[in-house]
Simulated assay, not measured.
Amino acid sequence: MFYHIKELAYQAKPEKPDPVFAKKLQELIGGQFGEMSVMNQYLFQAWGTRKHDKYRDLLLDTGTEEIGHIELLATMVARLLDDAPVTELETAAASNPAMAAIIGGMNPQHAIVSGLGAMPKDSVGVPWNAGYVAASGNLLADMRANLNAESQGRLQAVRLFEQTDDRGIKDMLSFLIARDTMHQNQWLAAIYELEQQEGVVVPSTFPRHLEKTEVSYLFLNHSMGDESSKGRWASGPSMDGMGTFQYVRDVPPFGPAPKLKPAPPAEHDTPPDVK
């Protein structure tokens, strides 16, 4: 169950209208690493967690917080679109929406589709996609996906921070950037805890004797150079403590050349011996 209160998670008041920046902020709402993605990711991970424990609560707390971040950004987008040159844009967009977007810099859909409101799309108008969500049922795998999502999201928020001089926008982004700092740290803390319990390789429950362990810790040099031999991954103890990294400079084939059976006649494929 969710409850809504009227107050925002933080203030969202720009100094002046800026329809171009409103278009840019759409990335933080409906982009691959935007707030809609992390909101759904954390909530679906929580709902699929089989244990009602601290990790489920962690995910629910954070997913619910992200709902408020979407509201915050949507409010900022709406205020940035206040007093935008809608009439001129609508006239231009009616004849050539692409040209209107280029000339005005504003997303024409903000004037034509959403009535000067935010949309569940990214900064170039691509609708948000549920395929952005990672919710595997494996907590360690999901926490690592969460760390990546927050890393990418914070990177984009910081880039947008550098692209405006509006103190109101910067103030809101500063808040979101700080929350992303916390979220990266909390996912790292959860990853650390889970790795202490399970090890670093996902999934930890697969029987090791069913794995081709002779290649489990080989770094295969699939290039003409050998710069990769200088990394931590090329020698020394493996990160899971269960093997030793080895660098293979000249990679051998591990299997024979493939020989496929002829296709059925109805497929009308090229006969196997004809070139």
Rank of each mutant, 00 (worst) to 15 (best):
F2N: 14
F2K: 15
I5Q: 15
E7F: 00
E7K: 08
K13T: 12
P14D: 14
E15A: 06
F21W: 08
F21H: 13
F21V: 08
K24R: 15
L25W: 02
E27T: 09
E27L: 12
I29F: 02
G30V: 08
G30A: 11
F33N: 14
S37L: 00
V38D: 03
V38N: 02
N40H: 07
Q41Y: 07
L43W: 06
Q45H: 00
A46R: 01
R50N: 06
K54R: 12
Y55G: 05
D57R: 07
L59I: 01
D61Y: 05
T62P: 00
G63E: 10
I67G: 04
I67R: 11
I67K: 04
H69K: 06
E71M: 14
E71A: 13
L73D: 03
V77H: 04
L80T: 04
D83T: 01
E88Q: 10
E88W: 05
E90G: 00
E90L: 15
A93R: 01
A94E: 11
A94C: 01
A94F: 07
S95A: 15
A100D: 09
A101H: 05
N107F: 15
V113H: 05
V113Y: 09
G115A: 07
G115R: 04
L116T: 13
L116F: 13
L116D: 12
G117R: 14
G117K: 14
P120S: 03
S123Q: 11
N129C: 10
A130G: 08
A130V: 11
Y132T: 06
Y132G: 01
V133A: 10
V133S: 11
A134K: 12
A134E: 05
A135Y: 02
S136R: 04
L140P: 03
A141D: 12
M143C: 11
A145E: 10
N148I: 08
E150S: 03
Q152G: 00
G153Q: 00
L155G: 03
L155R: 13
Q156S: 02
Q156C: 00
L160C: 03
E162M: 04
E162P: 00
D165H: 09
R167V: 09
G168Y: 12
I169T: 12
K170M: 11
K170H: 07
L173Y: 07
S174P: 02
F175Y: 13
F175I: 13
L176Y: 13
R179G: 01
D180I: 02
Q184W: 01
N185V: 08
Q186F: 13
A190R: 14
A190M: 15
Y192W: 07
E195Y: 10
G199F: 13
G199W: 11
V200D: 06
V201K: 08
P203E: 12
S204R: 02
S204M: 02
T205C: 10
F206S: 04
P207K: 07
L210S: 01
T213V: 14
F219R: 06
F219Y: 12
G225N: 11
E227H: 13
E227M: 14
K230F: 15
G231I: 01
R232V: 04
G236T: 10
G236D: 07
M239K: 06
M242K: 15
G243N: 09
G243C: 14
F245M: 10
F245Q: 09
R249P: 01
D250P: 00
P253G: 02
P256H: 05
P256E: 12
K259P: 00
E267T: 08
T270P: 08
P272C: 04
P272S: 03
V274M: 13
